[in-house]
């Protein structure tokens, strides 16, 4: 089998993939020393390892406590709570109103519940009902059912707002890397299929229409990878407004990759027996969290149109920066 990403994968990604494919996710996190890197988010090498984990998780359809831990970090780094805290995610459901979810292996310790306009509450996981949501894609999404009446605000809104933005920045970037990994694996499935599956007496991968579908999917992966890697390579720990771009692009390109690869797989790709639907569902689910591609695109455009000029162009002066 030929790996369409062999040329561009770093050694680091290789070892993360190896760790995640041999032992349980939490064990892999420990052996990689992943959480020890959290205090070094200001360092590009540490970011490479921290976010690289998510790309590997997406490739392998694996989940761990990493997202919830990463998103808790800004609160903890500012003195709120201890390492046993994990972050939840708020999502607005048009059918059911406001929901609190967590993407993690079953959480232990304390949950940070940050509601915009209210502030952060801290609740012990033993005091809440956690309902696993049944979804393909091994995303480990769980709904947190909690009655917040009477639960005091631990971090007032004023301080929470800044930390929320940082947490969201990290969460969006991590999800984008996971979606990138999932897109890459979906593409690999389709490339392998195009090489093996024969019709009209030849591999379907010899037909230009099929080749171009796959090539576009590879371009979409390359674009997302280049854009997401700016978060790692930048001298800044947070690039203002850039998380929206990375996450919007991940949703748009990730879905395009899934559509094009499904077309190449044909009917077999539409079965539960085939892996493709796991990658597709994972991407759809992750797209819906922390701002979907549709919502962020709408926000990016209208914000830029009305503010006239605050375009988050992170490659500005690339030649100067690289030097």
């Amino acid at each position: 089998m030929i790996d369409p990403f062999a040329e561009t994968d770093s050694d680091f990604l290789g070892s993360t993939l190896a760790a995640l494919s041999t032992v349980a996710p939490e064990e892999a996190l420990n052996s990689l020393g992943w959480s020890d890197l959290l205090p070094h988010l200001d360092d590009a090498d540490a970011r490479q390892a921290l976010f690289g984990l998510f790309r590997a998780q997406g490739r392998l359809l694996v989940n761990s406590s990493a997202l919830a831990t990463l998103m808790a970090h800004p609160y903890l780094a500012n003195g709120w709570g201890s390492t046993s805290h994990v972050a939840t995610i708020q999502r607005e459901s048009p059918r059911h109103g406001s929901r609190t979810v967590i993407m993690s292996t079953p959480p232990i310790g304390n949950l940070l519940i940050d509601r915009p306009g209210e502030g952060v509450r801290i609740v012990a996981s033993s005091e809440v009902a956690i309902r696993p949501i049944d979804l393909p894609g091994h995303v480990n999404l769980q709904e947190v059912e909690v009655d917040l009446v009477g639960v005091p605000i631990a971090i007032p809104e004023e301080e929470a707002a800044i930390l929320r933005a940082q947490s969201q920045y990290l969460g969006r970037t991590a999800l984008a890397f996971d979606m990138l990994g999932a897109s890459e694996s979906a593409l690999k499935l389709a490339v392998d299929h195009a090489r093996d599956r024969e019709q009209f007496g030849q591999p379907i991968g010899s037909f230009q229409a099929v080749r171009h579908l796959l090539a576009w999917a590879r371009v979409d992966c390359a674009a997302l990878s280049a854009v997401a890697e700016q978060v790692i390579d930048s001298e800044e720990q947070f690039l203002p407004g850039y998380d929206a771009i990375v996450k919007a692009l991940a949703g748009r390109n990730g879905q395009r990759v899934c559509q094009r690869t499904l077309q190449v797989l044909g009917a077999i790709g539409f079965t539960t027996e085939h892996q493709h639907h796991h990658f597709y569902s994972r991407i759809l689910c992750m797209d819906s969290l922390l701002g979907s591609s549709a919502a962020l695109s709408y926000e990016l455009a209208s914000k830029y149109r009305t503010s006239m000029g605050a375009f988050p162009d992170v490659t500005l002066h690339a030649a100067v920066q690289a030097n």
């Binding site: 890697e229 830029y304 149109r305 162009d313 992170v314 030649a319 690289a322």
Partner: peptide, 30 residues
Amino acid sequence: IEFAAPHADALLADAILDLASSGAASAAGL
């Protein structure tokens, strides 16, 4: 951008995302 109309926002968003992609890819090329 001074001529931007709300009805074209979806296309504007695509332009922003595609420019982010070409910027990152071109910088890597350099």
